[in-house]
Amino acid sequence: MADYNETEFLICVASRLMQDRTIAFVGTGIPMLAASLAKKMHAPELVVAFEFGGLGASLDKLPLGVGDSRTFHKALIASGICDAMETAQRGFIEYGFLGGAQIDMYGNLNTTVIGKYWPPKVRLPGSGGANDVASHCWKTIAIMRQHDTKRFVKKLDFLTTPGYLTGPGTREEAGLPPNTGPYRVVSNLGVMGYDDKSKRMMLLATNPGITKEQVVQNSEFEMLVADKIAVNPEPSAQELKILREHVDPDKLYI
């Protein structure tokens, strides 16, 4: 078994969800690393979109933020926020990668406050581009580094970013584009999807050594479990080599 840490595994699992010849909206951190790894492994023509206007960057150097010069190094276009967000709003962007402090069973995310809105117990960063990304991209993938009952919650303190809101049909009722919504959740315990009918989060695959009971127990809401649970393959030697030597050689994140 290869020696790797939890972050490296998360990056590899997220990376495998990225498809060649699609556009993926990514934020700082794990999605950025996953996109860079995907481009070097199986998706060389993946177009990576950053909210401040960098589209199609080479990602040969890892950005420190969603607007630094590496987000448009050897890119297709260096435009601005309006163009990036409007490209998503027009239906051009397949995948959006997000994170959050809390997620509920419909894939709604909170990155705004803990406690009441104002003054809050904890003021978090706010939506940033997440609300736009989850409103307009066809499929959104949430990366949750820590799978526990404080983060996979029954009720969000604040619904920053839309998942399936309160169930089937509610995105459309709210006016969000049809046939869009959460697709996967990647956590340190496994990968979740959503039940077609109920739009509720459902465990699809666990990480090696993790049981489905652990995933259920570490979710405050009732986690659905697929009939057949896969096991996420461990990072391959090649994935780890590329990740360590080419994606993040300066160890900024891993």
Partner: peptide, 13 residues
């Protein structure tokens, strides 16, 4: 007009 923020507490606040 935009199609962002619909259905969320972001819009409510």
């Amino acid at each position: 007009p935009t199609l962002s923020m619909l259905g969320t507490d972001t819009l409510k606040n």
